[in-house]
Computed example of a mutant assay.
Amino acid sequence: MKRRDYQPIYDNTFRRRHRYRRWFVVLILVLLVVGSGWGWYRWDAHQRAQVASYPVRGVTVNQDSGYLDFQQLAKSETFVYLQATSGATYTDDDFSDNYSRSQGADIQVGVAHTFSFTTSARRQFNHFKSTVKRNSGTLPIMVAVSYYGKYNSNNTEMATQGQKLKTLVRLLSSHYHQGVVIFASKSVLTQFVKPVLPNQDYWTAGGKLSGHSQQVKLIEYDANGQVTQNGQNLPVAKSVFNGTRRDWHAFTK
């Protein structure tokens, strides 16, 4: 009699269970992807609706942003800030070229400096002045402040650093007569900036688009934003002005 090949019942059962488990895992993964995509879509739609409620919008650019067409940028943005200097020695490679090309566009231009805890206010001011010269734009000068290294809220010497920042703001304001706005995160503004510059105009970094006081003039809502020009995505930081167009005109006088 010919031998018949019998498969154990438990082997077939195991295979079916394994197949069902695999399809169940695939289904869960599909649902997670779809759910994440839908969640992101709703968040993005909400973010775009919020941004649209602010009539004055703009970007901050530096040498990493690449070659920008400022005429094209002016079609969607009201203002642009150009990174110029940092500390007492660093200069953005594209500042001079960006500033020259921005002058032919219908867009308001501001200039930015990054504050250094390790160099004096006078040296930073002299470096900014020698780099920017009279090309300081028409907007208040932006001074960016952020903690780094040992310079944070736990450092007992930060009060001295605060006086340095205050001196730098005074030097810039008296020389350029166009005001200064301090760019920083909410925590840095609260802990470090406000104690020495309580009446200064502020620009929040990475903050939410709502719930800010009138002292917060600008809000950065996307530090890793992009603008598309000639088929290329160029990295920029995106911000809005916290007020009406009438408020904007008062801010830029």
Rank of each mutant, 00 (worst) to 15 (best):
G87L: 09
N155P: 08
Y20I: 14
V26P: 03
N152A: 04
V193T: 07
I182L: 11
A88N: 13
Q47T: 13
Y147D: 10
E157S: 14
A223D: 02
A144D: 09
A250M: 11
Y10P: 05
K2W: 10
F183W: 08
Q50S: 10
A105R: 07
K164V: 12
P8E: 14
L172M: 07
V25R: 10
Q47A: 11
D106F: 05
G137E: 00
Y99F: 15
P198L: 08
G39F: 08
S146H: 09
F192Q: 02
A121P: 05
S210K: 15
A159E: 12
L29I: 14
N135H: 15
W40M: 14
L234Q: 01
E220Y: 00
K164T: 13
Y6I: 15
Y151C: 03
Q214C: 08
I107C: 03
P55G: 04
Q124H: 08
R3T: 13
R246Y: 12
L29F: 11
V111K: 04
W40F: 14
V111Y: 02
L27S: 11
K133F: 04
P8V: 11
V26G: 06
T91Q: 14
Q178A: 06
T89S: 15
T13L: 14
P140V: 11
S65D: 00
F241C: 02
A88F: 04
L82H: 03
I219G: 00
V25N: 09
V180D: 02
I28Q: 07
I9N: 11
Y90N: 06
R22A: 13
I107L: 07
S65N: 00
A45V: 09
V34I: 15
V196T: 10
N98S: 07
Q108K: 12
T228R: 13
E157G: 12
